[in-house]
Amino acid sequence: MRNTERRPWSIADFTIRLVLLVLAALLLLALQLTGQLRGVQSTITQITSPAQLGATSVTGSAAELVSFVLQLGTLSQRAAELEQINGSLQSELFRLTEVERENGELRRFLQFAQERPGLALRGAQIVGRVIGQESTNFLDFILLDLGQIHGIEVGMPVVTDQGLVGRVSQVNNSVCKVLLITDVNSAINALLQQSRLPGVIRGTARGDLIMDFIPQGVKFEVGEIVLTSGLGGRFPANIPIGRVIEIRQRDIDIVQQAVVQPLVDFNSLELAAVVTNFNPSEEIHDLLLNEPPPPDIGGASLLTGTLSLTGTVPLTATTPVTVAGAEGTP
Protein backbone atom coordinates (compact mmCIF):
# COMPACT_ATOMS: atom_id res chain seq x y z
CA MET A 1 0.00 0.00 0.00
CA ARG A 2 1.15 3.45 -0.79
CA ASN A 3 2.54 5.44 2.09
CA THR A 4 0.54 8.63 1.87
CA GLU A 5 2.98 10.43 4.13
CA ARG A 6 6.09 9.16 2.44
CA ARG A 7 7.36 12.63 1.71
CA PRO A 8 7.70 15.50 4.19
CA TRP A 9 5.69 18.65 3.67
CA SER A 10 7.45 21.00 1.25
CA ILE A 11 6.44 24.55 0.33
CA ALA A 12 7.91 24.18 -3.13
CA ASP A 13 6.08 20.94 -3.74
CA PHE A 14 2.90 22.49 -2.48
CA THR A 15 3.33 25.63 -4.58
CA ILE A 16 4.05 23.67 -7.73
CA ARG A 17 1.00 21.52 -7.18
CA LEU A 18 -1.14 24.57 -6.47
CA VAL A 19 0.05 26.42 -9.54
CA LEU A 20 -0.40 23.40 -11.77
CA LEU A 21 -3.90 22.74 -10.55
CA VAL A 22 -4.91 26.38 -10.78
CA LEU A 23 -3.54 26.56 -14.29
CA ALA A 24 -5.38 23.39 -15.20
CA ALA A 25 -8.60 24.81 -13.87
CA LEU A 26 -8.09 28.10 -15.68
CA LEU A 27 -7.29 26.22 -18.85
CA LEU A 28 -10.50 24.27 -18.53
CA LEU A 29 -12.39 27.50 -17.98
CA ALA A 30 -10.79 29.07 -21.00
CA LEU A 31 -11.46 26.06 -23.16
CA GLN A 32 -15.06 26.03 -22.12
CA LEU A 33 -15.51 29.74 -22.70
CA THR A 34 -14.14 29.34 -26.20
CA GLY A 35 -16.36 26.36 -26.86
CA GLN A 36 -13.55 23.84 -27.19
CA LEU A 37 -14.99 21.47 -24.63
CA ARG A 38 -18.49 21.13 -26.02
CA GLY A 39 -17.87 17.75 -27.53
CA VAL A 40 -16.12 16.44 -24.46
CA GLN A 41 -18.76 17.84 -22.16
CA SER A 42 -21.51 16.36 -24.30
CA THR A 43 -19.88 12.94 -24.14
CA ILE A 44 -19.34 13.17 -20.42
CA THR A 45 -22.91 14.29 -19.91
CA GLN A 46 -24.17 11.30 -21.90
CA ILE A 47 -22.10 9.04 -19.68
CA THR A 48 -23.04 10.62 -16.41
CA SER A 49 -26.71 11.37 -17.04
CA PRO A 50 -27.88 7.77 -16.35
CA ALA A 51 -26.03 7.88 -13.04
CA GLN A 52 -27.67 11.18 -12.24
CA LEU A 53 -31.08 9.87 -13.20
CA GLY A 54 -30.53 6.78 -11.04
CA ALA A 55 -29.29 8.88 -8.15
CA THR A 56 -32.26 11.20 -8.48
CA SER A 57 -34.63 8.25 -8.41
CA VAL A 58 -32.90 6.61 -5.47
CA THR A 59 -32.61 9.79 -3.48
CA GLY A 60 -36.22 10.61 -4.29
CA SER A 61 -37.35 7.28 -2.88
CA ALA A 62 -35.07 7.70 0.11
CA ALA A 63 -36.42 11.19 0.70
CA GLU A 64 -39.97 9.89 0.59
CA LEU A 65 -39.03 7.15 3.02
CA VAL A 66 -37.38 9.61 5.37
CA SER A 67 -40.33 11.95 5.04
CA PHE A 68 -42.65 9.08 5.88
CA VAL A 69 -40.55 8.08 8.89
CA LEU A 70 -40.40 11.67 10.08
CA GLN A 71 -44.14 11.93 9.73
CA LEU A 72 -44.75 8.76 11.71
CA GLY A 73 -44.80 10.62 14.97
CA THR A 74 -47.11 13.23 13.56
CA LEU A 75 -49.27 10.59 11.92
CA SER A 76 -49.54 8.73 15.17
CA GLN A 77 -50.55 11.91 16.95
CA ARG A 78 -52.96 12.77 14.15
CA ALA A 79 -54.43 9.28 14.29
CA ALA A 80 -54.90 9.63 18.04
CA GLU A 81 -56.65 12.95 17.52
CA LEU A 82 -58.86 11.50 14.82
CA GLU A 83 -59.66 8.53 17.01
CA GLN A 84 -60.64 10.88 19.76
CA ILE A 85 -62.81 12.89 17.38
CA ASN A 86 -64.26 9.69 15.99
CA GLY A 87 -65.03 8.50 19.49
CA SER A 88 -66.79 11.71 20.41
CA LEU A 89 -68.69 11.69 17.10
CA GLN A 90 -69.74 8.11 17.63
CA SER A 91 -70.84 9.00 21.10
CA GLU A 92 -72.76 11.94 19.69
CA LEU A 93 -74.24 9.74 16.96
CA PHE A 94 -75.27 7.19 19.55
CA ARG A 95 -76.81 9.93 21.67
CA LEU A 96 -78.66 11.39 18.69
CA THR A 97 -79.83 7.95 17.63
CA GLU A 98 -81.14 7.42 21.11
CA VAL A 99 -82.80 10.84 21.03
CA GLU A 100 -84.35 10.03 17.66
CA ARG A 101 -85.59 6.71 18.90
CA GLU A 102 -86.90 8.28 22.07
CA ASN A 103 -88.49 11.04 20.05
CA GLY A 104 -90.31 8.52 17.91
CA GLU A 105 -91.44 6.67 20.96
CA LEU A 106 -92.66 9.83 22.62
CA ARG A 107 -94.52 10.81 19.49
CA ARG A 108 -96.28 7.48 19.51
CA PHE A 109 -97.06 8.00 23.18
CA LEU A 110 -98.42 11.41 22.35
CA GLN A 111 -100.64 9.97 19.66
CA PHE A 112 -101.71 7.25 22.06
CA ALA A 113 -102.62 9.84 24.66
CA GLN A 114 -104.35 12.11 22.16
CA GLU A 115 -106.52 9.24 21.01
CA ARG A 116 -107.49 8.67 24.64
CA PRO A 117 -108.14 12.11 26.09
CA GLY A 118 -109.83 10.58 29.08
CA LEU A 119 -106.61 9.10 30.44
CA ALA A 120 -104.14 11.08 32.45
CA LEU A 121 -100.81 9.51 31.64
CA ARG A 122 -97.62 9.87 33.55
CA GLY A 123 -94.60 8.63 31.66
CA ALA A 124 -91.82 6.64 33.21
CA GLN A 125 -88.66 4.89 32.30
CA ILE A 126 -88.24 1.24 32.95
CA VAL A 127 -85.57 1.15 35.58
CA GLY A 128 -85.40 -2.53 36.13
CA ARG A 129 -86.91 -5.87 35.52
CA VAL A 130 -87.52 -8.34 38.24
CA ILE A 131 -88.28 -11.89 37.35
CA GLY A 132 -88.95 -14.22 40.20
CA GLN A 133 -87.85 -13.28 43.66
CA GLU A 134 -91.41 -13.85 44.77
CA SER A 135 -92.91 -16.94 46.32
CA THR A 136 -94.13 -18.37 43.03
CA ASN A 137 -90.81 -17.83 41.28
CA PHE A 138 -92.62 -17.02 38.06
CA LEU A 139 -93.70 -13.53 38.75
CA ASP A 140 -92.82 -11.09 36.01
CA PHE A 141 -92.35 -7.52 37.12
CA ILE A 142 -90.81 -4.37 35.85
CA LEU A 143 -89.77 -1.44 37.97
CA LEU A 144 -90.64 2.14 37.03
CA ASP A 145 -88.99 5.29 38.28
CA LEU A 146 -92.29 6.59 39.59
CA GLY A 147 -93.50 6.28 43.15
CA GLN A 148 -95.73 7.80 45.78
CA ILE A 149 -94.15 11.20 45.36
CA HIS A 150 -95.42 11.15 41.79
CA GLY A 151 -98.90 10.22 42.82
CA ILE A 152 -98.62 6.59 41.89
CA GLU A 153 -100.90 4.15 43.66
CA VAL A 154 -101.29 0.43 43.68
CA GLY A 155 -103.55 -0.85 40.95
CA MET A 156 -102.94 1.92 38.44
CA PRO A 157 -102.74 0.59 34.88
CA VAL A 158 -99.49 0.87 32.98
CA VAL A 159 -99.48 1.28 29.20
CA THR A 160 -97.26 2.04 26.27
CA ASP A 161 -98.21 3.39 22.90
CA GLN A 162 -98.49 -0.23 21.79
CA GLY A 163 -100.94 -1.24 24.45
CA LEU A 164 -101.38 -2.55 27.94
CA VAL A 165 -98.34 -3.43 30.00
CA GLY A 166 -99.76 -4.33 33.38
CA ARG A 167 -100.67 -2.66 36.61
CA VAL A 168 -98.87 -1.24 39.57
CA SER A 169 -98.63 -3.89 42.25
CA GLN A 170 -96.37 -2.23 44.75
CA VAL A 171 -95.30 1.34 45.37
CA ASN A 172 -92.66 2.88 47.48
CA ASN A 173 -91.51 6.47 47.65
CA SER A 174 -89.92 6.79 44.22
CA VAL A 175 -90.24 3.44 42.51
CA CYS A 176 -93.13 1.22 41.70
CA LYS A 177 -93.34 -2.39 40.72
CA VAL A 178 -95.55 -3.32 37.78
CA LEU A 179 -97.06 -6.75 37.39
CA LEU A 180 -97.00 -7.49 33.68
CA ILE A 181 -100.01 -8.86 31.86
CA THR A 182 -97.89 -11.84 30.90
CA ASP A 183 -97.50 -12.86 34.52
CA VAL A 184 -99.36 -16.04 35.36
CA ASN A 185 -101.12 -14.25 38.21
CA SER A 186 -102.48 -11.60 35.90
CA ALA A 187 -106.10 -11.76 34.75
CA ILE A 188 -107.80 -9.06 32.71
CA ASN A 189 -111.29 -8.77 31.40
CA ALA A 190 -110.95 -8.44 27.67
CA LEU A 191 -112.92 -8.09 24.51
CA LEU A 192 -112.35 -9.13 20.92
CA GLN A 193 -112.47 -5.94 18.90
CA GLN A 194 -114.40 -7.15 15.85
CA SER A 195 -116.52 -10.00 17.11
CA ARG A 196 -117.12 -8.19 20.44
CA LEU A 197 -116.78 -11.46 22.34
CA PRO A 198 -115.74 -11.13 25.96
CA GLY A 199 -113.16 -13.20 27.74
CA VAL A 200 -110.42 -13.13 30.32
CA ILE A 201 -106.79 -12.64 29.42
CA ARG A 202 -104.31 -14.38 31.64
CA GLY A 203 -100.60 -14.79 31.46
CA THR A 204 -98.72 -17.99 30.89
CA ALA A 205 -95.33 -19.19 31.97
CA ARG A 206 -94.21 -19.02 28.33
CA GLY A 207 -94.89 -15.31 28.10
CA ASP A 208 -97.92 -15.74 25.87
CA LEU A 209 -101.43 -14.69 26.73
CA ILE A 210 -104.44 -16.91 26.81
CA MET A 211 -107.88 -15.47 26.30
CA ASP A 212 -110.17 -17.76 28.18
CA PHE A 213 -113.90 -18.01 28.75
CA ILE A 214 -114.84 -16.99 25.21
CA PRO A 215 -118.46 -18.10 24.73
CA GLN A 216 -118.87 -21.32 22.78
CA GLY A 217 -120.69 -21.36 19.50
CA VAL A 218 -119.59 -17.96 18.28
CA LYS A 219 -116.94 -17.63 15.62
CA PHE A 220 -114.03 -15.20 15.64
CA GLU A 221 -110.95 -14.86 13.52
CA VAL A 222 -107.27 -15.20 13.97
CA GLY A 223 -105.72 -11.75 13.87
CA GLU A 224 -108.43 -10.03 15.83
CA ILE A 225 -107.24 -7.40 18.26
CA VAL A 226 -107.96 -7.95 21.91
CA LEU A 227 -108.86 -4.91 23.99
CA THR A 228 -109.49 -4.35 27.65
CA SER A 229 -113.20 -4.50 28.27
CA GLY A 230 -113.25 -2.41 31.42
CA LEU A 231 -115.15 -5.09 33.24
CA GLY A 232 -113.90 -5.70 36.72
CA GLY A 233 -112.78 -2.13 37.09
CA ARG A 234 -109.11 -2.89 37.13
CA PHE A 235 -108.30 -1.38 33.71
CA PRO A 236 -109.84 1.27 31.52
CA ALA A 237 -111.70 0.00 28.52
CA ASN A 238 -110.39 -0.17 24.96
CA ILE A 239 -106.67 -0.45 25.72
CA PRO A 240 -105.11 -2.80 23.17
CA ILE A 241 -103.71 -5.98 24.66
CA GLY A 242 -102.76 -8.31 21.85
CA ARG A 243 -103.66 -10.11 18.68
CA VAL A 244 -105.22 -13.54 18.35
CA ILE A 245 -102.76 -15.94 16.82
CA GLU A 246 -104.48 -19.24 17.50
CA ILE A 247 -108.00 -20.41 18.29
CA ARG A 248 -108.57 -23.39 20.59
CA GLN A 249 -112.05 -24.63 20.15
CA ARG A 250 -113.38 -28.03 21.10
CA ASP A 251 -117.04 -28.97 20.94
CA ILE A 252 -116.86 -30.76 24.25
CA ASP A 253 -115.80 -27.62 26.05
CA ILE A 254 -118.25 -25.06 27.20
CA VAL A 255 -115.96 -22.14 26.33
CA GLN A 256 -113.35 -21.37 23.70
CA GLN A 257 -109.80 -20.20 24.14
CA ALA A 258 -107.51 -18.06 22.04
CA VAL A 259 -103.76 -17.70 22.15
CA VAL A 260 -102.97 -14.02 22.09
CA GLN A 261 -99.67 -12.43 21.23
CA PRO A 262 -99.10 -9.26 23.27
CA LEU A 263 -98.87 -6.10 21.25
CA VAL A 264 -96.28 -4.77 23.64
CA ASP A 265 -92.79 -6.09 23.05
CA PHE A 266 -91.81 -6.72 26.63
CA ASN A 267 -88.26 -7.57 25.68
CA SER A 268 -87.55 -4.09 24.38
CA LEU A 269 -89.65 -2.17 26.80
CA GLU A 270 -87.99 1.07 27.83
CA LEU A 271 -90.73 3.60 28.37
CA ALA A 272 -94.14 3.18 29.89
CA ALA A 273 -96.86 5.43 31.20
CA VAL A 274 -98.97 5.05 34.29
CA VAL A 275 -102.62 5.98 34.01
CA THR A 276 -102.88 8.13 37.10
CA ASN A 277 -106.53 9.13 36.88
CA PHE A 278 -107.83 5.64 36.97
CA ASN A 279 -108.70 4.21 40.37
CA PRO A 280 -109.36 0.53 40.25
CA SER A 281 -112.46 0.02 42.26
CA GLU A 282 -114.17 -3.13 43.44
CA GLU A 283 -117.30 -1.06 43.80
CA ILE A 284 -117.12 -0.29 40.16
CA HIS A 285 -116.54 -3.94 39.58
CA ASP A 286 -119.65 -4.76 41.52
CA LEU A 287 -121.52 -2.11 39.67
CA LEU A 288 -120.26 -3.34 36.35
CA LEU A 289 -121.39 -6.82 37.13
CA ASN A 290 -124.92 -5.54 36.97
CA GLU A 291 -124.40 -3.88 33.66
CA PRO A 292 -125.49 -5.51 30.40
CA PRO A 293 -122.94 -7.93 29.01
CA PRO A 294 -120.67 -7.13 26.05
CA PRO A 295 -120.67 -5.87 23.36
CA ASP A 296 -122.38 -3.11 25.34
CA ILE A 297 -119.40 -2.65 27.60
CA GLY A 298 -121.20 -0.27 29.80
CA GLY A 299 -118.61 -0.36 32.54
CA ALA A 300 -115.97 0.91 30.21
CA SER A 301 -118.22 3.62 28.95
CA LEU A 302 -118.99 4.59 32.47
CA LEU A 303 -115.31 4.73 33.30
CA THR A 304 -114.29 6.80 30.37
CA GLY A 305 -117.24 8.98 30.93
CA THR A 306 -116.61 9.70 34.53
CA LEU A 307 -112.82 9.68 34.57
CA SER A 308 -112.22 12.16 31.83
CA LEU A 309 -109.03 13.65 33.09
CA THR A 310 -105.94 14.92 31.42
CA GLY A 311 -102.39 14.88 32.57
CA THR A 312 -98.74 15.04 31.79
CA VAL A 313 -96.41 12.51 30.36
CA PRO A 314 -92.95 13.36 31.57
CA LEU A 315 -91.66 10.23 29.97
CA THR A 316 -88.05 10.80 30.78
CA ALA A 317 -86.18 13.19 32.89
CA THR A 318 -84.59 14.72 29.81
CA THR A 319 -87.57 14.84 27.50
CA PRO A 320 -90.76 15.84 29.23
CA VAL A 321 -93.69 15.77 26.86
CA THR A 322 -97.00 17.26 27.71
CA VAL A 323 -99.94 15.34 26.50
CA ALA A 324 -103.47 16.48 25.86
CA GLY A 325 -103.86 19.55 27.99
CA ALA A 326 -101.35 18.79 30.63
CA GLU A 327 -102.09 19.73 34.12
CA GLY A 328 -99.51 19.68 36.79
CA THR A 329 -96.39 17.76 37.43
CA PRO A 330 -95.47 15.61 40.41
Binding site: L18, L21, V22, A24, A25, L26, L27, L28, L29, L31, Q32, L33, L37, Q41, I44, T45, T48, Q52
Partner: peptide
Protein backbone atom coordinates in the same frame (compact mmCIF):
# COMPACT_ATOMS: atom_id res chain seq x y z
CA UNK B 1 -18.99 21.18 -12.52
CA UNK B 2 -19.53 18.21 -14.78
CA UNK B 3 -22.59 17.04 -12.88
CA UNK B 4 -24.03 20.46 -12.20
CA UNK B 5 -23.26 22.04 -15.57
CA UNK B 6 -21.33 24.97 -14.12
CA UNK B 7 -18.32 26.54 -15.80
CA UNK B 8 -15.76 23.78 -15.86
CA UNK B 9 -12.93 24.57 -13.47
CA UNK B 10 -14.71 27.26 -11.47
CA UNK B 11 -15.63 24.93 -8.64
CA UNK B 12 -12.13 23.52 -8.65
CA UNK B 13 -10.68 26.98 -8.20
CA UNK B 14 -13.10 27.88 -5.43
CA UNK B 15 -12.54 24.59 -3.66
CA UNK B 16 -8.79 24.98 -3.90
Amino acid sequence: DLFSGGPLGSSSLALM
